[in-house]
Write a protein that binds this DNA or RNA. Structure first.
Lengths: 205, 205
DNA sequence: TGCAAAATGGAGTGTCAACTACAAAAAGTG
DNA sequence: CACTTTTTGTAGTTGACACTCCATTTTGCA
């Protein structure tokens, strides 16, 4: 075993296998919930044996951390392109449509990957909780920067705290996704985001 | 065993024991999460033996349904008194303070009892998911009626759908509680609710 | 007061899921 | 081409946790 800076190195094939495990775990956890997705399920779904799983992850919690990182990148990766160019109400509505469309693509199952992980791990895995707090922080920052752009462009008043607005919008999305997941109906998250947008519209100069 | 309408009857002592089990289960699940709270933990915490637990509940999922019902009553029971007299922004702020105070009382651990249960059970227990959807529905109705009262009193425009406003407020609370739980800091939920209130203020006639 | 039902104690059992041991195959590397 | 490391397969083991059995005590009630 060679190490570089304390981090294990894998061959290209190894990294692919590791990635396959993470993706299978992420999908199963989203679709069935944290407890229902067993390592055996994940092994079967990723087409790997137990020895492979433990070759790439020391234990379940380490795999879970990798899942948290993976889903963080998946979610932020989906939102970043659109939020980075956010500077108008039009783009804000595009973003709302993207959130709704993504949820509908999974039939409202799983809700928000980060929200579900946060809720399921917050009280049992302090490391994961902190990592997810960081994920939400990044998400909020993306929103804040977009809102600040809207302020700079004269679409919004400048005397309101963009960070607080971003937090409120993020909370609305998370709550809306949870309600939509529970009700199996995407209209909750749509209405929640629409309310956030309507609020922002009242803050035009 | 005597039954009344297909429902088991218990003596007063029996009902007390059953209640003790439900309350212990509710507390442990809130504090440690769904998976971490085992039946053994619950037995120890409620000071009952395994035979007692299975005397009152046929299996774990039945206990979980009882927990869902119990937490629904606990949450709605806390919100109902204040939401039933909601007809002004002053009362709305009282309600916000109550939500924040309740979360701080548990040091942000567990977040919203209903939100946590919904997130943890939605993909693994269809019955529980439906029950929780119903709980949210009731909660939303309480908010809607309060908002409608504000409209009738002339505190809010009457051309906005009270039900949609209630849904948006509920989503903000749920998302705010999740963020506060993850960050271990009640400011998220406070800011989220404040944003909802600020939005409603823009809807004054 | 006697008898049936309810409540409880305590000591199990079975299963399943996380995790391990060990060896063989594959693949990089000098 | 040797030979070291990585990757993978197979067949376990272990422990925890949901759930059960049966006896005993307690309680309700006719």
């Amino acid at each position: 075993m060679t190490t570089t800076g304390g981090v294990r190195t894998f061959t290209a094939k190894g990294q692919a296998t590791r990635q396959r495990i993470i993706e299978a775990a992420s999908r199963l956890i989203l679709e069935q919930g944290l407890e229902a997705a067993t390592l055996e399920d994940i092994q079967a779904s990723a087409h790997v044996s137990a020895s492979q799983l433990y070759h790439y992850f020391s234990d379940k919690s380490e795999l879970l951390m990798a899942v948290v990182d993976h889903q963080t990148e998946a979610v932020l990766g989906a939102h970043r392109p659109i939020l980075e160019r956010l500077d108008s109400f039009e783009t804000l509505e595009e973003w709302r449509d993207m959130v709704v469309t993504m949820l509908e693509a999974q039939n409202c199952v799983g809700g928000c990957p980060l929200g579900s992980l946060a809720s399921g791990l917050a009280e049992s895995d302090a490391l994961a909780r902190r990592a997810l707090a960081d994920s939400f922080e990044q998400w909020q920052t993306l929103l804040r920067d977009g809102i600040a752009s809207m302020q700079r462009r004269g679409e919004l008043q400048t005397d309101v705290d963009a960070g607080q607005l971003a937090l409120a919008v993020l909370a609305g999305v998370q709550g809306g996704l949870l309600l939509s997941q529970t009700r199996r109906d995407s209209s909750s998250v749509r209405i929640a985001i629409d309310a956030s947008i309507a609020y922002l519209r009242t803050l035009r100069p």
